[in-house]
């Protein structure tokens, strides 16, 4: 009896303590009706809404523009092997003439987050992902300052590349709003002008 008790106790302790301390399951919930939303929230399972008779589409109605937002870019993305719209996009002017102090700061923040990682904080095409070819990114990003091709590239064509992607660069339309894209392009153009003036 004594032995039997001791052995069961010992094995119980060994089993309990040998469990991994990596917590792969979330904790239990007290009053789940207050913890989980009755309404559909972001990152819920939205796959079966239609079956439940809920017709919801977060996308704006086709052909509409939200108040205070920019007009859409007039040229669509080219089909593979075609460069017509890429060339035509040169003619689109930047709706932002100059950046206010606050906007310039914001544009710099956006540039450093979204572009600097490849094109470099100094716009020299040598961001932390490329690092002179030692980083994980194999292709050399464009040197926005110091390469005549990009210094002479009109704002509209830059917008085309940011919005639709170009070669290995992907589209940033999901990360930057239209206004933010134009702001970043203005920021790049300003930096290029400063670099040219100091030459």
């Amino acid at each position: 009896m004594n032995k039997f008790l001791a052995i069961t106790f010992l094995t119980a302790v060994v089993v309990l303590t040998s469990c991994s301390d990596v917590k792969r399951k979330p904790g239990s919930i007290y009053m789940p009706d207050m913890a989980y939303s009755r309404a559909y929230e972001s990152y819920d399972d939205h796959s079966k809404l239609k079956e439940k008779g809920i017709h919801y589409d977060a996308r704006p109605v086709a052909g509409t523009i939200a108040r205070g937002k920019e007009m859409p870019f007039p040229y669509a993305q080219d089909a593979a092997g075609d460069t017509t719209n890429y060339t035509l996009s040169k003619t689109v002017p930047n709706p932002i003439d100059s950046l206010s102090v606050v906007d310039a700061k914001e544009a710099e923040r956006l540039y450093l987050i979204n572009c600097g990682i490849c094109h470099g904080a100094k716009l020299d095409g040598n961001g932390p992902l490329y690092k002179d070819g030692n980083g994980p990114y194999a292709a050399k990003p464009a040197a926005l300052v110091g390469d005549a091709k990009y210094e002479n590239m009109p704002d509209g064509q830059m917008f085309y590349s940011v919005a639709y992607g170009k070669n290995l660069m992907g589209s940033y339309a999901s990360q930057l709003s239209k206004r933010q894209r134009w702001m970043v392009i203005k920021y790049i153009k300003n930096k290029q002008a400063v670099a040219k003036a100091s030459k």
Binding site: K23, R24, K25, P26, G27, I29, I117, L129, G135
Partner: peptide, 27 residues
């Protein structure tokens, strides 16, 4: 109850924040 400190689930892809945000300095 209702707290999940140290919760560390397995994700569908092993995505390492250490590699992306740490080593490669992605914001």
């Amino acid at each position: 109850l209702g707290r999940s400190k140290d919760y560390q689930p397995e994700q569908p892809i092993y995505y390492s924040h250490k590699v992306h945000a740490g080593v490669n300095q992605i914001n």
